[in-house]
Write a protein that binds this DNA or RNA. Structure first.
Length: 592
RNA sequence: CGGGGCGUAGCUCAGCCCGGUAGAGCGCUGCGUUUGGGACGCAGAAGUCGUCGGUUCAAAUCCGGCCGCCCCGACCA
């Protein structure tokens, strides 16, 4: 392709629409343009990169037995009503009506369609297992799109679905995806970390997210490089080590004027926060039948609440922090709330499992400026629920070997999910087994965001001059820069361009009538990994210059075998990338 | 949905406080000179100042509503 005819300009300055490195670079380099919040156009450069990512996804899905198909973006409401998600999901689902007033849904994902296909296509255990996938547009009306391409409202996702007669089959296809996703990450030049994740209220027990570790990520992860433990912070476990037990002291009221926070109280009493108990209040939504109720959560003073685990422990559908009035209404004093004096008819008390193992805690006395010392579980208070509701933290002992966990941020590139029979049961997708008996199909679903993967690659491979994309993802393999508009330089560049095209090399040819500085700056920005320059200087030195983007170490290629050497350079780039395929994590090698 | 910021030429922004004929740099068009890291000269085109309303002799500027975009939080099948 000739840059003189190319659609999509580079920008000297980044538009002020987002501030993550990846989206600024992708905008500046002429890959994407924003149409509205969370809606992007993909210009020719991005489109070529996305097609390459999709091709890698195809190859890896096909390699584990996937069959590619394509399902619609617009669905009738009925299938979402059958699965129940029509009612469970709120404004995030795009809904509209056709001309007859029939309710339609924009696909957020395709479990419902796959399940409905199962009803027509799968009858017998003989037809199982199956793995189907497609690469298709999704729409999720995110309350807040952010981070450029990292969180958008319309996006393309590779989603695959497995169908099995039992959980053993599901497990095997799940493991195949686990390994394939690591291979995909490697081929994209990304280190993906598989972390345990929240299976949600979906019925399954096992789910993993494939994370690209980055400070701009939206998810927090707890990982331990030594033991290999890796988990979304939402579901991270850690070893809880109680303070050394001491003989029970009497529960004693002490005057603590103005000491309304844990840090102040501990300081005031001359103890560490580990010797205190902390109360945090939430309003829990328990569904339409049950009015929302106050939840009092108690963790040791040095720890924070894991809201997801609290929600599960309280069996609530949703939580939000309680307002001061709601706390007061239950007879509790904010800042001095006490698990000893709480009215359990007005609040559900959930305590972390470390609390019963802790002795002589300092806790609120439920009166302004007063605390108790010597609070002990069982004698001074009991709970409605005891559950692990404390949030893992940086440095917490990991659950495998007690080595310190690290809390880092990550971007979720992919996820794999054991659905079980959540959809097949509610929608009636069954197969007949050997004995002629009907059973719901056991399903799994597995996604990878194509555009998000590109954003992560751009994030990883950017510098102050632009992007330096892995050759597997770069829209072109080589940029050919001609520094001459006529005469022998022009002739030599034109000839080389046609030879490269004829050899099947993906070449972007900068034949524009602009200054060399602009050509080099644009070449750096666009992120094409290899550059070949033809100029009067290079011809004097014996041919064309060739090397990695921005490298000072340039080879002079005689024009006669330039194509061959450029081909060799491309192969070398792929070789570098392919080394990432060695020693990849696999399901069998993981340590959870 | 809560908090904050922004909306002026294709892009980045100034002008707004203190009302009085709309600006700069980059980009774009033409001509000429240039050609190894974002060249130079000359000439030129380009903006309903997000939108609606109010105040005023007069509004980009002051006031109010709405819309859009960005950031933080809530939310995230």
């Amino acid at each position: 392709m000739r840059l003189s005819k190319f659609f999509g300009q580079t920008l000297r300055e980044a538009p002020s629409e987002s501030d993550s490195a990846s989206s600024q670079m992708l905008v500046r380099a002429g890959y994407v343009r924003q149409l509205a919040a969370g809606l992007y156009s993909y210009l020719p450069l991005a489109h070529r990169s996305l097609r390459k990512i999709e091709q890698i996804l195809r190859e890896e899905m096909d390699a584990i037995g996937g069959q590619e198909m394509c399902m619609p973006v617009v669905h009738p409401a009925e299938i979402w009503q059958e699965s129940g998600r029509w009612y469970e999901i709120g404004d995030e689902m795009g809904r509209f009506q056709d001309r007859k007033g029939r309710e339609l849904v924009l696909a957020m994902t395709h479990e419902e369609v796959v399940t409905s296909l199962c009803k027509s296509e799968i009858r017998s255990y003989r037809q199982l297992p199956q793995m189907v996938y497609h690469i298709q547009t999704k729409f999720r009306d995110e309350p807040r799109a952010r981070g450029g391409l990292i969180r958008v409202r319309e996006f393309v996702m590779k989603d695959s679905y497995t169908l099995d007669k039992d959980f053993e089959g599901l497990q095997s296809q799940y493991e195949a995806h686990y390994d394939a996703y690591h291979r995909i990450g490697a081929r994209l030049g990304l280190n993906l970390v598989a972390v345990q994740s929240d299976p949600g209220m979906m019925g399954g027990k096992v789910a993993h997210e494939f994370m690209y570790i980055s400070p701009v990520g939206e998810d927090s992860l707890a990982i331990c490089e030594e033991t290999g433990y890796a988990s979304n912070l939402d579901v991270a476990n850690f070893q809880k080590i109680p303070e050394p037990a001491s003989a029970p002291e009497p529960l004693t009221r002490v005057h603590t004027p103005g000491q309304s926070t844990i840090a102040k109280v501990a300081d005031f009493c001359g103890v560490t926060t580990r010797q205190t108990g902390k109360m945090v209040f939430y309003m829990g939504d328990f569904g339409p039948e049950d009015p929302s109720r106050l939840i009092a959560a108690c963790v040791r003073g040095d720890m924070e609440i894991n809201e997801l685990q609290l929600r599960y422990a309280a069996k609530a559908q949703a939580l939000r922090p309680a307002e001061a009035e709601e706390i007061t209404a239950a007879g509790c004093v904010p800042g001095y709330a006490s698990m000893c004096d709480i009215d359990r008819t007005k609040a559900l008390l959930v305590v972390d499992d470390l609390i019963p193992e802790s002795t002589n805690l300092i806790v609120g006395a439920n009166e302004r400026d007063w605390h108790y010392t010597g609070a002990n579980y069982g004698r001074d208070f009991t709970a409605d629920v005891i559950a692990p509701i404390a949030l893992a933290y940086d440095g917490a002992p990991d659950p495998i070997d007690g080595k310190p966990l690290q809390v880092v941020r990550g971007i979720e590139v992919g996820n794999i999910f054991q659905l079980g029979t959540r959809y097949s049961s509610s929608m009636g997708a069954t197969y007949t087994d050997e004995d002629g008996e009907g059973f719901p199909i056991v399903m799994g679903s597995y996604g990878i965001g194509v555009g998000r993967a590109l954003a992560c690659v751009a994030e990883e491979y950017s510098d102050e001059y632009g992007m330096d994309l892995p050759i597997s993802v770069a829209p072109y393999q080589v940029i050919l820069v001609s520094l001459g508009r006529e005469g022998e330089v022009h002739e030599a560049a034109e000839t080389l361009y046609h030879e490269l095209l004829a050899a099947g090399i993906e070449v972007l040819y900068d034949d524009r009538a602009v200054s060399p500085g602009i050509k080099f700056a644009d070449a750096d920005l666009r992120g094409i990994p290899l550059r070949c320059t033809v100029s009067s200087r290079s011809l004097k030195r014996g041919g064309a210059e060739f090397g990695r983007r921005r490298s000072k170490d340039l080879a002079i290629l005689p024009l006669g075998d330039a194509v061959e050497q450029i081909q060799a350079g491309i192969t070398e780039c792929f070789n570098v990338l392919n080394r990432r395929l060695e020693d990849l994590p696999t399901w069998a090698s993981r340590s959870e």
